[in-house]
């Protein structure tokens, strides 16, 4: 069994191991001890903080094997994208070029540098070891973040976004970067991601032109990469699409990867969860559900058998499960179907 919980400084060695395995482009999991340490530290502080809006907090979670204590995955939530430095994306737009005399009305696809998504809550740092991909545990790893948001709506934004890693080949070349970014920087994609890791992403964004980029002029491979998702990122992508996230409007400025967005209130897990009081008891044959407590420093989420009584507003759990979730009878628990 696995439980999702806030990361602790003592997790650093295990998280370093995970970061080393995560693909290029997941800059939120840098392969760098100091930055990972800072990331955990910021998360600890965020879970402890007493805030009433979405500010600089960043929440970083780990998926732990309850038997062995081993970590097999990470995921994170940034309360407010663009809080410390501007959050840039390309907006997919069409310009209308019209000539009445010629009776022509053509729509031209352009990419416009923008920071529309500033202030949105950002889902980041999703990584799970291969054997657990496409299981209930990968669902837990991603969706428990949404229950964290559901349990503490005042700490997060009205909209939630997530940047999907875009296409790149095995040599680490990104067709979108090669067609767009390289023009302005003459450095390769891996280098660009490296700079981002060190200097921050907005550093490069600020050097990109503010003028729209005409998509029909881009090389075919760059055009085709717009809004695509790297095969290695299909799992987190599919989970969010199932949650009702939309894909059309924004893309990443580096690799052209899809940026998904949803109104917080309309996200399936958030709209569909129930808040129940915990009862301890028999759960044989009960459906397996997504479960999360409403605590912060003791935040816990897992997947397990639970019986919900809608009329009473209660959820019945085994003692084991209650222990894993750090709850006792009478505590609040958020429940959502898998």
């Amino acid at each position: 069994m696995f439980v999702l919980r806030p990361s602790r400084l003592t997790d650093l060695p295990a998280i370093e191991r995970i970061a080393a395995k995560s693909p290029v482009g997941v800059t939120s999991l840098p392969d760098n001890r100091e930055r990972l340490y800072a990331k955990i530290e910021a998360s600890v502080k965020s879970f402890e903080s007493d805030v009433c809006g979405n500010g600089e907090e960043t929440y970083f979670l780990v998926l732990e094997d309850t038997r062995t204590g081993e970590l097999v995955g990470t995921s994170g939530v940034v309360a407010s994208a663009g809080y410390q430095e501007p959050f840039y994306n390309y907006r997919n737009e069409t310009l209308i070029h019209a000539s009445r005399e010629l009776g022509v009305h053509s729509k031209i696809h352009v990419l416009s540098l923008c920071h529309d998504l500033t202030g949105n809550t950002l889902l980041t740092s999703f990584y799970i070891d291969e054997p657990y991909q496409y299981t209930e545990w990968s669902d837990l790893l991603s969706r428990a973040r949404l229950l964290l948001i559901a349990g503490h709506p005042q700490r997060f934004g009205d909209s939630v976004v997530s940047e999907m890693v875009g296409l790149s080949d095995e040599q680490g070349n990104s067709p979108f970067w090669d067609g767009v970014g390289r023009l302005f920087f003459d450095i390769d994609y891996a280098q660009a991601e490296l700079y981002c890791g060190i200097k921050g992403r907005s550093f490069i964004a600020e050097l990109l032109p503010q003028h729209p980029i005409y998509v029909p002029l881009l090389p075919e491979p760059a055009q085709e990469a717009i809004g695509q998702v790297h095969p290695a990122a299909m799992l987190p992508f599919e989970i969010l699409i199932n949650e009702g996230f939309e894909t059309e409007r924004y893309i990443d400025i580096f690799d052209g990867g899809c940026v998904v967005q949803a109104r917080t209130a309309n996200i399936r897990t958030i709209a569909g969860h129930r808040r129940c009081r915990v009862e301890i008891g028999e759960t044989a044959g009960a459906p397996v559900q997504l479960l999360a407590n409403r605590k912060l420093t003791d935040y816990r989420a897992t997947v397990g058998a639970a019986v919900v009584d809608e009329q009473q507003g209660t959820v019945r759990l085994s003692q084991t499960l209650a222990d894993v979730l750090c709850v006792v009878a009478g505590d609040a628990l958020l429940v959502c179907a898998l």
């Binding site: 070029h97 019209a98 000539s99 005409y214």
Partner: peptide, 16 residues
């Protein structure tokens, strides 16, 4: 009338 259809924003020659 033809010019109405041409790009109004700067075009980077390297894209050609």
């Amino acid at each position: 009338f033809i010019a109405e259809l041409m790009p109004q924003h700067p075009v980077y020659v390297d894209f050609l």
